[in-house]
Computed example of a mutant assay.
Amino acid sequence: MSNPFDLTARIGVVPVIAIESVDHAIPLADALLEGGLPTAEITFRTEAAAEVLARLHEQRPELLLGAGTILSPEAARLAVQCGAAYGLAPGFDPAVVDAAQSAGLPFAPGIMTPSDISLAAAKGCRLMKFFPAAPAGGPSMLTNISAPFAHLGLRFIPTGGVKLETMGEWLSLPVIAAVGGTWIATARDMREGDWAGITTRARAAVARAKELRP
């Protein structure tokens, strides 16, 4: 399998999903795939997350699965057991990075400051999650805090406040691998069974990414 982060960079956008019911797993996957978006970050913010990952890994292997909100070494190991191809976190925790690396899980810790970047880079991380992207200062902030590390070849996935309308501000930056989007499939969308809406938003996000990175 190719590096999953290389694949997400080619896609340009990753839906960030807090899924509340295992019964929503397959309809969600099918809605994303129909919209041409073959990846998803399933966050460990709900009790259903682990079972959702396992079900999707078994029944929708064509979906590139990420596990998000990995806050403990145990969660990193669980993500691998459930079939996640990559993992992300909102912050930097050296114990979590160590666990992910030991488990062979490609991992992007969260950063918001130059100190965060320094610590993550010292652990060998070359892809990081900039979170919360918009409240932390947006593209200008990331450009400035990442500049001293340019020689390391770091790349980032901004998440938090990113929208379809602002994707261009991010994807125009050379340091951006992909953007994370919570707007594509919200908990409310899934509770209401708005699978068609998820497909529409997924298709629009993919199209926008292709416009920006032909």
Rank of each mutant, 00 (worst) to 15 (best):
P109K: 00
A99L: 05
G87A: 14
P90H: 10
P90R: 11
P94A: 09
Q101I: 00
Q81C: 07
A95H: 11
P109T: 08
A108V: 01
L105N: 13
A95T: 12
L88H: 00
F107C: 08
V97W: 02
G110Q: 08
A89G: 15
A108K: 03
A89P: 01
C82Y: 00
L88A: 12
P106K: 01
A108C: 14
A79T: 08
A79Y: 01
D98Y: 07
L88C: 03
A79L: 08
A103E: 08
L105G: 07
V80S: 13
G83E: 08
Q101E: 06
G87H: 03
V97I: 14
G87R: 04
A85I: 01
D93I: 00
A108S: 14
A79N: 12
V97R: 03
L105V: 03
A95G: 09
V80N: 02
P106S: 06
A103Y: 07
A99H: 09
G83H: 12
Q81W: 00
P106F: 03
A95I: 05
G104E: 07
F107Y: 12
G83I: 08
F92S: 11
P94Y: 08
G83Q: 09
A95V: 05
Y86V: 01
G87Q: 09
D98G: 11
F92D: 10
P94M: 05
A103T: 04
S102D: 15
C82T: 13
S102V: 10
A79C: 13
Y86E: 04
A89S: 15
A103K: 09
Q101F: 03
P90M: 08
A95C: 07
A79P: 09
G91P: 01
P109R: 06
A99C: 11
G87L: 02
A108I: 07
V80R: 13
C82E: 07
G110R: 05
A100D: 12
D98I: 01
V96C: 08
A95N: 14
G104D: 10
F92T: 15
P109C: 04
A100C: 12
V80A: 14
